[in-house]
């Protein structure tokens, strides 16, 4: 094992101990540690940079879960997204067996599963960017989509991205910039600078991606692991935004492998082979 790997392992062990101090059950502790490990593996970041100290992260997780449980929930609205009997094969490999997902206004669905199990494929099918082999998707309202990576122009400024997406939504330049800056500010990012997208850090670039997806207040938000590269604080803020968007009546589908939010979402679609489950 590399020195870096050893360091992350020590950090994860310390996190487990800290979570136990916060009186999390062994199951929850295991889930949080597993999701942190998955995030570290996927992001390639050292644990300290990604999450801060184990003590701080455990405290933040505890606070986040406690505050979310206190939030009053509005009754769910009409169906905003209904994916029915979606299947997809690539050659001989079946990526998606018949899959259903229904999300109402004011609900959050998490799509989870191992790498390569078809999470992003399912989301792209829901967005209409990819054709399934069978099945259909019904969308009621405006659609916003945040890809896992890409989705921005290297040589354009963030504000130019806002203008570009805003023009598609029918906004003039001033309004587009205003909405983009506002969205960026909620993610603690000042998007008014003249830094081209290629010079943004991975996390900031994902913030740009996320702001572009939410510009114009879409009714249905499809988010494909949008928090890649986020630091701990921004990651927790992101989920706060998800709850806020939900409470505003949006339907949100988040592809995630970070499991500590699953007890807060309304639906969990597990695409791991043999575990096709939709649970409330």
């Amino acid at each position: 094992m590399t020195e870096r790997g050893m360091s992350d392992q020590r950090w994860l062990h310390a996190l487990g101990q800290e979570l136990a101090r916060h009186r999390f059950t062994p199951d929850v502790t295991h889930h949080v540690v597993a999701e942190a490990a998955a995030h570290l593996r996927d992001s390639g970041q050292p644990a300290l940079r990604a999450f801060g100290t184990p003590e701080g992260y455990a405290a933040a997780v505890a606070e986040s879960l406690a505050s979310q449980r206190r939030q009053p929930r509005r009754p769910r609205g009409r169906v905003r997204l209904r994916a029915s009997q979606i299947t997809k094969r690539y050659g001989r490999r079946t990526v998606l067996k018949p899959t259903d997902l229904t999300v109402h206004a004011g609900e959050v669905a998490a799509v989870v599963g191992a790498n390569g199990c078809g999470k992003s494929t399912f989301l792209r099918i829901c967005a209409g960017l990819l054709s399934p082999d069978s099945g259909e998707v019904l969308v009621d309202g405006l659609l916003g989509y945040c890809p896992q990576e890409g989705g921005t122009y290297d040589f354009l400024l963030p504000e130019e991205h806002f203008v570009l997406v805003g023009a598609g939504r029918g906004f003039d330049r001033g309004r587009s910039r205003q909405l983009g800056r506002g969205g960026a500010a909620t993610l603690h990012w000042d998007a008014a600078g003249d830094v081209q997208a290629r010079h943004l850090s991975g996390g900031t670039r994902q913030k740009l991606n996320l702001v572009m997806a939410t510009l114009g207040d879409p009714d249905v938000l499809l988010l494909d692991e949008p928090y890649q590269g986020f630091d701990r604080g921004t990651y927790l803020d992101f989920w706060q935004h998800v709850w806020r968007w939900r409470d505003e009546g949006r339907a949100i589908v988040v592809v995630t492998h970070l499991l500590n939010q699953l007890d807060q979402v309304d639906h969990v679609l597990d695409l791991t082979p043999g575990a096709r489950e939709v649970a409330a």
Binding site: L129, P147, D154
Partner: peptide, 19 residues
């Protein structure tokens, strides 16, 4: 080639193909 990845999301943002 640069636009190939981005154009689908611009379509979702309200652009028509010919735009």
């Amino acid at each position: 080639g640069t636009s190939r990845q981005i154009e689908p999301r611009l379509r979702l943002s309200g652009y028509r193909s010919h735009h």
